[in-house]
Nucleic acid binder design. Structure first.
Length: 638
RNA sequence: GCUGACGUAGCUCAAUUGGCGGAGCAGCUGAUUUGUAAUCAGCAGGUUGCGAGUUCGAUUCUCGCCGUCAGCUCCA
């Protein structure tokens, strides 16, 4: 007998093997109609899988987020049902639910076309209208092989089952799939979905295996949610840094230069320069020293560092210089280490913190390049801290302060992940454990919340990853801090301790923005191109209403410029409306409109980006003071 | 790198079955002097990504290369 505890605390005794459907039905027929799945002792299962264990028992209806996963998984089967009807040649792969939807992989001779997608969607609606129940069956290996005799991908999966593992199949109408479940009761539950696109996907994610055709779809409980999701996609598209980057004249790439190499236009360079200036001041305040290291470096250095061994496929080919091979640097650490080793170091010198906006080049495969976010040449705001093991906690604390201050300035909420020892790792497990413990303790002490990514560390040490959350809720890779036990060994780093004996320091690698290219690309999307005043390439545009106001406007522009404001005069012979529109389109934070009245009273009519007609007349002196104050405060708005 | 799609003026897009490559915006010139998101007119702008091939004739069909996009794999 199993004991089920209902949400109201009531207990039910049922025989092992009872179907959840019967339990739900005994609670209420109305509930059974709405039930999509159940949760038993924390695990989701469908209504037709026999109960194997007792525990907390909850009925999942369309209100429950975990039921949505079940619905989406069923959606994948419905998709496969439709595809099989129209393309009987399609061999089925896997079809799981994913965030926001589901996909299904097929092996076909002729890839799907966009027209196919529309036909599949229509066919899916028929399958849904036919309201096939999902029927579960448990089968033995031999029967399963018979059922999937024409599906080589399923046979491959079948071969991997353990002897006593339960093999289950799910059938909806004409379609049968090898599947663990769970599923909703019948196909009619899928109502609000849309097929999105097709793409190639390697069988089992292995690039050495054949490529399958994947169909992606989204699915939701309600029409509103589906529409909201599609709207979110639109919103992401509207913010795309590649489109805005061109519209706002921030950057470009050029076939003649080569893919993945960014040309920073003046407006983009202004943003980057502001960030670099800000960060330079910030890190100097936080105890860093700036260094510069060469872009092209003798290959020998990367033999010592191990990059040639572990990172070779990401490095650009060697350049022959007088018989010696040189490489473009893919990372800045070896250079910083050489500076550390340029003289003997005492424990009194530690910690040493070297920082550099170091431009690195990495060979990325052509298919992964993406605007500014994934490139082949980029500048890291890189730093390396050389310290004793005892200094690690205080260094981490300093870093948490630094990161917090910086991310607040850009208006990013963030979360932290602690990544621990991976399977292949360097150094003694005790060393790892103590390092991980140190990191965790520092954060706990500060009341800093974090999650643990088990086994996600680099092979040479554990790390902290900061994940940024942007204005539309997407996560971005933010600052990272990595402890390194490896490079100090490889380079045989030493300092002289108080005991006059040599000791090995520890290294901390850390970046804040990571890559300037990626960070600025991310900021474009975060702000939707409407940069806060301090970052805006053009901060104010002075717009005379007519020729009578041009002289006054010129002098206002000059006063702004001499106060350090990036201001421009727009005295083109266009209508006022045209020039306002132009400034709005370029997302310039402030427009200072100057007419006859303003010119006579040394004032401007202020129009704030995005605020429409709402305007305020203020004296030029007040305007200059206000704008300078907001720049200095690095205010997020406007 | 792999699968698929795409590549026409600075930008966004047109161009019947293969038959003289167009438009809007931006640019230039002129007129207009504007009170808060596109004033009017004229002009100029192209070896249709590059290179072969088929054809009387190729933006259109075929092949190769380059680049871009959606994913996969990989990642700051």
């Amino acid at each position: 007998m199993l004991t089920l505890t209902l949400p109201d605390g009531a207990e039910r005794q049922v025989e092992e093997g009872t179907l959840p459907r019967d339990v739900v039905g005994s609670i209420g027929q109305r509930l059974l109609r709405d039930a999509l799945a159940v949760e038993v002792d924390g695990d989701v299962q469908d209504l037709i899988t026999p109960l194997r264990k007792g525990g907390d028992f909850k009925v999942l209806t369309a209100k429950h987020p975990r039921a949505l996963d079940v619905l989406r998984h069923s959606g994948a089967h419905i998709l496969a049902t439709a595809v099989r009807r129209l393309r009987p040649d399609a061999k089925i792969g896997f079809g799981p639910s994913i965030e926001d939807g589901f996909y299904y992989d097929f092996e076909v001779d002729e890839p799907f076309t966009p027209d196919d997608l529309a036909r599949f969607e229509t066919e899916m609606r028929k399958v849904i209208a036919e309201s096939y129940p999902f029927i579960r069956a448990e089968v033995n290996q031999a029967d399963a092989r018979k059922k999937f005799a024409d599906d080589p991908l399923k046979l491959e999966r079948l071969a991997e089952f353990d002897e006593n593992e339960i093999i289950s199949t799910y059938t909806d109408g004409p379609f049968i799939d090898l599947c663990r479940g769970p599923h909703v009761p019948d196909t009619s539950h899928l109502k609000h979905f849309k097929l999105l696109h097709t793409a190639g996907a390697y069988w089992r994610g292995d690039e050495k295996r054949q490529m399958l055709q994947r169909i992606y779809a989204t699915a939701w409980f309600s029409k509103e949610e589906l529409e909201a999701y599609l709207h979110r996609l639109e919103e992401a598209k509207r913010r795309d840094h590649r489109t805005l980057g061109q519209q706002l004249d921030l950057y470009s790439t050029d076939q003649r230069v080569g893919p993945g190499l960014i040309l920073w236009h003046p407006r983009g360079a202004t943003i980057r320069n502001e960030i670099e200036n800000y960060e330079r001041d910030l890190i100097i305040r936080h105890g860093y020293e700036l260094v510069y290291t060469p872009h092209i470096v003798s290959e020998k250095l990367f033999q010592i560092s191990g990059h040639l061994e572990n990172f070779k496929e990401s490095m650009f080919g060697g350049v022959d210089v007088e018989g010696a091979s040189y490489r473009l640097k893919p990372m800045n650490c070896p250079g910083h280490i050489c500076i550390f080793q340029s003289r003997s170091r005492s424990y009194r010198d530690l910690p040493i913190r070297y920082a550099e906006f170091g431009t690195v080049y990495r060979y990325e495969r052509s298919g992964v390049l993406h605007g500014m976010l994934r490139v082949r040449g980029f500048t890291q705001d890189d730093a390396h801290v050389f310290c004793t093991p005892e200094q690690v906690p205080s260094e981490i604390e300093r870093l948490l302060d630094l990161v917090h201050e910086m991310l607040e300035t850009f208006g990013y909420p963030y979360t932290i992940e602690l990544s621990t020892r991976p399977e292949k790792a360097l150094g003694a497990p005790e060393m790892w454990r103590s390092a991980e413990q140190t990191l965790a303790d520092v954060m706990k002490k500060r009341g800093q919340e974090f999650t643990i990514d088990e086994g996600g560390g680099a092979f040479y040490g554990p790390k902290l990853d900061f994940k940024l959350i942007d204005a539309i809720g997407r996560k971005w890779q933010g600052p990272t801090v990595q402890l390194d036990f490896n490079l100090p060994e490889r380079f045989e780093l030493e300092y002289t301790g108080a005991d006059n004996a040599p000791h090995r320091p520890l290294m901390l690698h850390r970046v804040l923005v990571g890559s300037m290219e990626r960070f600025v690309g991310g900021l474009v999307e975060h702000y939707a191109g409407a940069f806060p005043l301090w970052l805006a390439p053009e901060q104010a545009r002075v717009i005379p209403i007519s020729d009578e106001a041009v002289e006054a406007s010129k002098s206002i522009t000059l006063r702004l410029e001499s106060a350090g404001v990036r201001a421009h005069l727009d005295d083109r012979s266009e209508t006022l409306n045209y020039r306002i529109r132009d400034a709005e389109t370029l997302k310039i934070p402030f427009m200072a409109v100057v007419g006859k009245r303003e010119a006579a009273s040394d004032s401007i009519a202020l129009r704030v980006r995005g605020a429409g007609k709402k305007q305020e007349v203020m004296s030029v002196a007040n305007f200059v003071a206000m704008i300078v104050g907001q720049i200095e405060a690095r205010a997020l708005k406007p």
